[in-house]
Design a protein around this nucleic acid. Structure first.
Length: 580
RNA sequence: GCGCCCGUAGCUCAGCAGGAUAGAGCACAGGUUUCCUAAACCUGGGGUCACAGGUUCGAAUCCUGUCGGGCGCGCCA
């Protein structure tokens, strides 16, 4: 039950009624008609702009049209009163029985309250993390990982058919370097003196277990062989073990992808060639020279003719090369094939969660999809996550990538826990930079939003448990009478509950899971406010021994709030705290 | 040079799908409280929504331009 979308539908029906009565023109654009909670609650429960957006094409003033609509809206079953206000808003106060119905809906639908069919089963691919399999995940991957996972959950509960995907960059020069680095560790494991790891290879200790495993599997068999014989072996084993490592890191954060897609497989299956042939047939490929880049010029710049995808025809800034000078495919060529693969699998929405340093990829990804999709719908949506700055007691944590000193994702999660990590990553709009202070995020005070929200849930659990001990909160809410809830704080909480389904839909449409975090903080805040009132006014406490009916009502009410908190936290990937 | 993101209170940030008098937390000022419904509470001051145009009945929100900050710009992935 979404009181806002229900009301909007009714308003649209009222407009249609006026149209069939000949009072309004037939060809009105109704898409701009909204039904939303007014910012100022003095304006009632729901406000619609119908009269304002439809006035001009109807050749009426907003007020005239509002007056026409008013009697129809006043007649709605759920409406107590309606009035025209301001420039032409129609404000509505709902009948008292609406809030009880909302709460009953929560109690019936339980952990599915707020779920909707907004997405109507649309197939969405959410690709996130996709870090190179050359080492453990570091803190920089953290935000995109959490964001992507939460977004996927959000889209799921709003009715999309979501696939969570990780693209493994297991082709190209980087993983060759990785294979060579592991080979050294293999020699080391067999007792050879390898000295310092040469620059250009991966120095990290995390490759030592790979070396030992290679030694266990192959003994000394790989020694003395030419590189082209051992490299494929060490490379693949290393990639496999690194991906296991990465999967473990992600599991620490409660993140599980549906599909791990290998870039290498695109080459071996011939898809790279196929996809490029398809572009070629469509005439989107040509040979040409690119202009020298402005900015920083690469050291090995050479002016040469190359095979290019005409990305500029699809809105990109420059055309993109598909072949290297040695005749092999570029990374971008794999991207073309991968896009083609996703489109062929029937995804109508391709979501990419990338770091802000990949902003330059947005247009080329969109260009590729536009060129390849043909008659299919395949919309590319890119969400960029800004950097996370780590602090320890207000001091920035220094990291040097060159020296191999970086804070790993695992270190963060081990120190503060997955729930705190996830919530903090989502307590900011994705395109805004984020400060993460180890001290602040684990602080147990109301200034810490994770704690604040979890505490609200735990408080409810504590009351419900206490009630159960006294034999009152049995879960049978049939005798609850929500008309008894009349305190301002209680009314605000009921409005917040009623707004939850709408919030989820809006967050899904905007691909902005952070809105849920802020909503939860607000909901928690309202709950704590009511709780604090109970200190001063015992009649506002949840358990009122002398009044069983009120107690039952409030326990049911708390249960509904608890569902909202738990559902929201669940979408963000947190486990609601039962006690703290 | 070009592209993308950002610019809202002293600070960190929200601002819901263009809506009515722009919000929260911190900090600041004043007050309450030592209760066991622990990990405080209440009240208050504070704004040229970077700037200038435009679209609209209505713009922090959409468009254009300017300024300021960040990121990126072929044979790395």
């Amino acid at each position: 039950m979404n009181i806002f979308s229900d009301f909007q539908e009714q308003v649209l029906k009222a407009v249609l009624a006026l149209q069939s009565a000949g009072q309004l023109p037939d060809n009105l654009d109704l898409s701009k008609v909204t039904a939303e909670p007014p910012r100022d609650i003095a304006h009632g429960d729901i406000s619609t702009n119908a009269a304002m957006v439809l006035a001009k094409p109807s050749d009426l003033t907003p007020r005239q049209l509002a007056e026409k609509l008013l009697p129809l809206i006043t007649a709605f079953a759920s409406v107590q009163s309606a009035s025209v206000a301001g420039p032409g808003f129609i404000n509505v106060t709902l009948k008292n029985d609406v809030w009880p119905r909302v709460i009953n809906t929560v109690l019936e639908r339980k952990e599915k309250f707020g779920h909707s069919k907004l997405g109507s089963g649309k197939k969405v691919n959410v690709e996130f993390v996709s870090a190179n399999p050359t080492g453990p995940l570091h803190v920089g991957h953290c935000r995109g990982a959490v964001f992507g996972d939460a977004l996927a959950s959000l889209l799921k509960v709003t009715g999309f058919d979501v696939t969570k995907e990780y693209y493994i960059n297991d082709a190209g020069a980087q993983v060759d370097v990785l294979g060579r680095s592991a080979y050294l560790r293999y020699l080391e494991a067999l007792g050879e003196n390898i000295g310092e790891i040469p620059s250009g290879l991966y120095p990290g200790d995390y490759l030592k277990p790979v070396g030992r495993e290679l030694a266990r599997l192959h003994g000394r068999a790989l020694i003395g062989k030419p590189e082209e014989e051992w490299l494929p072996v060490t490379r693949q084993k290393t990639i496999d073990m690194m991906m296991d490592l990465i999967r473990d890191d992600l599991a620490e954060l409660n993140i599980h992808h549906d599909i791990f897609f290998s870039e290498r497989s695109l080459h071996s299956s011939g898809e790279v060639r196929e996809a490029i042939e398809r572009l070629e047939k469509q005439g989107h490929i040509f040979k040409g020279k690119l202009e020298k880049p402005k900015g920083e010029v690469p050291l090995d710049w050479e002016d040469r003719e190359q095979t290019l995808f005409r990305a500029t025809a699809f809105g990109d800034d420059i055309d993109r090369p598909l072949m290297k000078s040695d005749g092999s495919y570029t990374y971008f060529a794999s991207d073309v094939a991968y896009s083609y693969d996703k489109i062929s699998r029937g995804f109508e929405e391709l979501v990419y969660v990338l770091g802000a340093d990949h902003a330059g990829y947005v247009k080329r990804l969109q260009a590729v999809a536009a060129a390849l999709r043909g008659d299919r719908k395949a919309e590319v949506i890119v969400r960029l996550c800004q950097l996370v700055k780590l602090y320890r007691n207000g001091e920035p944590v220094r990291m040097s990538k060159r020296a191999g000193e970086f804070v790993t994702l695992r270190e963060v999660v081990d120190e503060v826990g997955p729930d705190v990590t996830r919530f903090m990553m989502l307590y900011r709009k994705n395109e805004a930079p984020l400060d993460f202070d180890f001290a602040k995020v684990t602080e147990q005070s109301k200034d810490n939003p994770v704690f604040y929200v979890q505490y609200a849930h735990a408080r409810i659990c504590s009351v419900l448990n206490k009630a159960q001990e006294q034999g009152i909160g049995t879960g049978d809410w049939t005798s609850a009478d929500f008309h008894l809830l009349s305190d301002e704080s209680e009314l605000r909480l009921m409005r917040a509950i009623a707004a939850f389904p709408r919030l989820l839909e809006a967050a899904a449409v905007a691909h902005e899971p952070h809105r849920i975090s802020f909503y939860l903080h607000e909901l928690a805040s309202e709950l704590h406010a009511l709780w604090n009132k109970g200190k001063e006014s015992p009649q506002l406490r949840f358990i009122v021994e002398a009044d069983k009916r009120t107690t039952t009502t409030r326990l049911a009410f708390l249960t509904a709030i608890r569902y909202c908190l738990a559902i929201g936290l669940g979408i963000l990937g947190l486990t609601p705290a039962e006690n703290m």
